[in-house]
Design a protein around this nucleic acid. Structure first.
Lengths: 252, 252
DNA sequence: CGCACAAAAATTGTTAACAATTTGTGTTGA
DNA sequence: TCAACACAAATTGTTAACAATTTTTGTGCG
């Protein structure tokens, strides 16, 4: 019964021109499978595809005008990223991270982003490299005030990835991309949209402390930013109910 | 002309019973594609498959008694892990990380493993949990003295993954697994086997400092361990020559 | 009315075949 | 002898079809 809806939902995903792969500086999709991977990836982190949604292979073939082999390869990689869950003989679903995974992701973020900031503080031309980030935060603010939720979410994630990029370490950048995408999934599931604190203010504070080379200040700002984000989450729905709930919320 | 050799090389890989996926605590291969993924993954980190080796799909099908679709899915995931390189229309090769990637991997390891150790120091029942690691180091030493190179390499990697597991954070464990596998690839390429310092002594030192809850000592031990490892590498061959050289060395 | 059971539809897992591209070989001509 | 060209073999990219499993639908019975 939910088929018609889900198919339609997936189709809007393809219609929307995807700039977020540019923003997150993903490699240009050379392959067909890379293209589909990026497309689904972007849709998930943009909250255009919500956790728990079934990703039927046939529908995806239809949307992206390709064969099932291609779709399956893309889904396998997304599963490896923990962006989708792959149940044997049952299909692919947008992943629904639980409480434990949430803790792990945020703890890892505190560790990794802390280490990244520590390295950034040693860079000589830091203020110059921070300029594009300043602009990015401005765009964030603009998107928020004009209620462009998708762009806002996109930029919030991109901010952290761009920050990682400044450390000039591809391993850390890829890791940050992965952590950001999983965080986006977590927020889609558990964040109460009512009191979403405007993250761009916190981003601003991070940049300010960085420019002042205030080590304690930056680390504090980042930790508070992440902790605020984590504390905003509500896990009242237990386990398997959550994804069903999300799907129903979407429907009406 | 090199076909016969490479095919034979790949076949030895399947013959050897793979315990390393158990050692590294990978999820049990439920799928066919998971099985093949693990098999190739293990072969690469065990140095049974060396960097630059071509992974022809047909040969892999033959070895693992499965179809090309399965092989392709596994290769796609390995490529995503940077364990194999996937060139369009040219096929899959065991990856050959370069100097930049080496720097990035080791820097990331210093950051992540440092953070992990910091967390471990806060655990109340640390000494108890350290016991299995002590035993693992003993096995390392035993494997080294009986010149069982494959087991030794396996255990050296497993040590760091097990250490990460103590932190009880799946994100960090997965990350450590990824970093360890890439490091193994780097060592296969650039390490001069002559003066390979016995890493188990350094592992021992890390455990001792951990048990004594000597924060500065552990961090120092780990950093030295990683720096020693990185310093042993030799990059005299530049760029694309390296993989060719490795393949030729293998052949005669 | 609800539960258990059975048939049908839909979806995934796997394999085989075909098309496109690249790599290797052999021939010709200067 | 060497370079360029053309042809042949091998390998990858893609699609379609079939088999196995799951989910849904429909029916009968208590």
């Amino acid at each position: 019964m939910s088929e018609a809806f889900e198919a339609a939902d997936v189709q809007t995903m393809a219609a929307e021109s995807s700039v977020s792969s540019r923003l997150l500086e993903l490699a240009e999709p050379a392959n067909e499978v890379d293209r589909i991977y990026s497309e689904i990836f972007d849709a998930v982190i943009d909250h255009r595809l919500l956790p728990g949604v079934k990703l039927t292979e046939a529908v995806l073939c239809d949307v992206f005008h390709c064969s099932r082999g291609t779709v399956r390869a893309a889904l396998a990689r997304l599963a490896h990223d923990k962006i989708v869950e792959l149940l044997p003989n049952r299909g692919a679903f947008v992943a629904t991270p639980d409480l434990k995974e949430t803790r792990d992701v945020f703890e890892a973020r505190r560790m990794v982003e802390g280490a990244i900031l520590d390295k950034l503080l040693t860079l000589p031309d830091l203020p110059l490299r921070l300029l594009p980030l300043r602009q990015m935060v401005e765009e964030e603010r603009a998107a928020f005030s004009r209620k462009d939720r998708v762009t806002w979410i996109r930029l919030s994630n991109a901010f952290h990835v761009q920050l990682a990029k400044l450390a000039d370490n591809e391993v850390l950048t890829d890791l940050m991309r992965s952590l950001a995408s999983r965080t986006s999934l977590i927020i889609a599931l558990y964040d109460v949209p009512g009191r979403s604190a405007c993250s761009f203010d916190e981003h601003d504070r991070i940049l300010a402390s960085l420019e002042a080379r205030d080590r304690a200040g930056v680390l504090d700002a980042m930790n508070h930013h992440l902790q605020d984000c984590e504390r905003r989450l509500r896990f009242e729905d237990d386990g398997m109910q959550a994804d069903l709930r999300a799907v129903f919320n979407l429907k009406r």
